[in-house]
């Protein structure tokens, strides 16, 4: 038999998975997860998941976007700097000052949003470790139903509290439809 990855329990109602998640959280397990077809309201609290840090990526991306937008406009139309492969050019338009943040704002603003969006999505992919085309859960026999109407909860055998028999009995107490084994 293939190496065991953990134990998985199947539920068919949001209430069932929610109560089960609360009990697993309170039992002190660390390496476990819930598989759901849609984001369940309140499940993060039930699992004890902290607020997602995606926003930190966004603020970094946004700041880079704003600064690089302003610098780009200053360099191309208000400076006479010489950089490798490109040179600034002091472009006088209508006798106005070479640079002012007002006229640079619309473009810098759009770049702020563009960079923020890329950073948020990049951050989400990094935090979720996507793309990940192989995962033990995806191999479980009826996990395909998890993108339809079924909920799963699994505890990895890497978890410090994991004990084959005790954990199986514990999962059984959560009133699942069935408890199965996840293979590596």
């Amino acid at each position: 038999m293939a190496k065991q990855h953990g134990l998985i329990a199947k539920f068919d109602t949001p209430a069932g998975i929610m109560h089960a998640a609360e009990k697993v959280r309170d039992a002190g397990f660390k390496k476990w997860d819930v598989i759901a077809p849609f984001p369940l309201h309140g499940l993060d609290t039930a699992m004890g998941i902290k607020r997602s840090p995606v926003g930190r990526f966004t603020i970094v991306g946004g700041t880079i976007g704003l600064v690089s937008g302003m610098l780009m406009i200053w360099f191309t139309s208000a400076s006479d700097l010489s950089l490798p492969y490109m040179e600034g050019y002091q472009l006088i338009v209508g006798g106005k000052p070479l640079f002012s943040p007002q006229y640079a704002f619309p473009v810098a603003y759009e770049m702020t949003i563009l960079f923020s969006a890329f950073a948020s999505i990049g951050g989400m992919f990094i935090l979720n470790k996507l793309p990940m085309h192989y995962h033990p859960v995806l191999k479980y026999k009826d996990v395909a139903a998890s993108s339809d109407d079924t909920f799963f909860l699994y505890i990895e055998n890497e978890d410090p509290q994991f004990d084959e028999d005790k954990t199986r009995a514990f999962l059984g107490e959560l009133e699942p439809l069935e408890v199965g084994e996840l293979e590596e």
Binding site: A36, L40, I49, S52, S116, G123, M124, N128, Y134
Partner: peptide
Amino acid sequence: MGWRGSNRQWSNYEMCYLIL
């Protein structure tokens, strides 16, 4: 992308969607 509907992923996903 190998999405498996894990709630730890949904949590980041929802935040990302909200930010977008």
